[in-house]
Design a protein around this nucleic acid. Structure first.
Lengths: 241, 241
DNA sequence: CGCCCGTAAGCTGTATACAGAAAAGTGTGC
DNA sequence: GCACACTTTTCTGTATACAGCTTACGGGCG
């Protein structure tokens, strides 16, 4: 068929969204027949989508068994952030370096910096109940930042790996909304990253990104251990900030 | 069916081998029907295998079009090695650190060091025609080293990403067998990496790995530009040794 | 009361059928 | 002789059918 909206792609996007948003809980069974009926597709596109999601680590898949939404463990979260801390600071530095030589690549980052400043000002003017409604815009900015880094990244392997990891990060965010205090510090961290990048300061960009990831991981851990103290630990590789 | 030998898996392994060994040349068409007939399978397992290989970068895949064996470009090779240089030195350092605390993880590395010394001695005793026949054992050692690093790597994301990249590296090796001179320097580089790891010296392991990758890339570039000067360039991210 | 085993239902792996989109080949017009 | 348009073929995307493995449930035994 290969219709304009490709059914396999549609199922993939739908499933990905449902997993990221936790509408599908970790460990939930992903039966091919059942999902096909729910999404109005046959098994073939569903199968394909499940394999793709397994490749991104959003689905636990063992041949012959029912696929399940990937479990979340404290160790897994640590490993994820340790890995991100290896990739993303380097990507940020690379973007800053490239931007220093080619102004055009910095345009989206300058726009984001403006958008962030506008948001910051309006946010501080709100009372706490109204602030809650601002999460959307804030997450929009952080998402756009990550996307901009990926788009500006010249190394396709690095770009792709970072992109594939985003889904998992998004899901973790949905698992534990941090309070407005963390949001403000995160905003500050993004300001630092944006300024470093737009100034073409690779070293500062790298440091700011490392700091941001370390802070985010810490907030996540606090939030998770509060939610469920029985998650489990292990996994190595240093997590220096 | 889900027979012990899983047909999808078999097709995947076969295709992967054929692509790595260049029996299937870059750009070769991978028609699902044709491959199915050749490998004695229906389209379904073939499709699955092709998607997996596309995920590993061994196949260029555009929905609706015929899948093709991934092209090779000088820029792509550079990007691959830049990315490996970000991951593997870190993994080597991590393995050295872990090994310093837990002797058991070093066992395979000690064994490899012995195997390498034995090979080195016997290799130097051969005349140049007989040396050519030793490539197999040498590549076996380097392969085993990479596998050991992956196995010892505590971070599953890092381990998996390095593993997925190996196929491409193997293919490049088949594309351009370097001469015995490069083999000897590569052997020396592996000795350095093994010694650093078994001594628990993370910094030395990282440096040795970076050096090895830089040297390998250089040898590859020399070999490739000699083979086909019309490959194309571009791609950034520094390749410091 | 708990454990084990057998049966049955459900699910995945694979093969195949059908519809529509690429792609290749062919013939025509310039 | 070359470019373009059309026809035909081939391929992919999707749906569905069948076989064997997994798993869940229920009954019997210790």
């Amino acid at each position: 068929m290969a219709r304009a909206t490709g059914k396999s792609e549609a199922v993939y996007e739908r499933l990905k969204g449902d997993i990221e948003s936790l509408r599908l809980r970790p460990g939930a069974k992903l039966g091919e027949v059942q999902l096909g009926e729910e999404l109005g597709a046959s098994r073939t596109p569903v199968r394909e989508a499940i394999r793709r999601l397994a490749g991104e680590g959003l689905v636990d898949f063992v041949p012959g068994e029912v696929a399940r939404v990937a479990a979340i463990s404290l160790g897994g979260v640590r490993a994820l952030f340790e890995f991100r801390m290896l990739l993303e600071p380097r990507a940020a530095a690379s973007v800053a370096t490239v931007g220093a030589a080619d102004e055009r690549t910095l345009v989206p980052f300058r726009e984001l910096l403006v958008r962030l400043e506008v948001f910051d000002e309006s946010f501080r003017a709100l009372d706490s109940s109204a602030q809650a409604g601002s999460y959307q815009e804030f997450y929009g900015i952080t998402e756009a930042f990550d996307q901009a880094v990926i788009a500006a990244c010249r190394n396709p392997y690095l770009a792709r790996t970072i992109r594939d990891l985003r889904s998992q990060t998004v899901r973790l965010r949905h698992l534990s909304h941090s309070g407005p205090r963390r949001m403000l510090t995160s905003l500050e961290e993004h300001r630092a990253m944006l300024k470093a990048v737009t100034h073409g300061d690779a070293q500062a960009a790298e440091a700011a990104c490392r700091h941001h990831l370390a802070q985010t991981l810490q907030a996540l851990i606090d939030s998770l251990t509060g939610l469920d103290p029985t998650l489990g630990t292990d996994v190595s590789l240093d997590v220096a900030g």
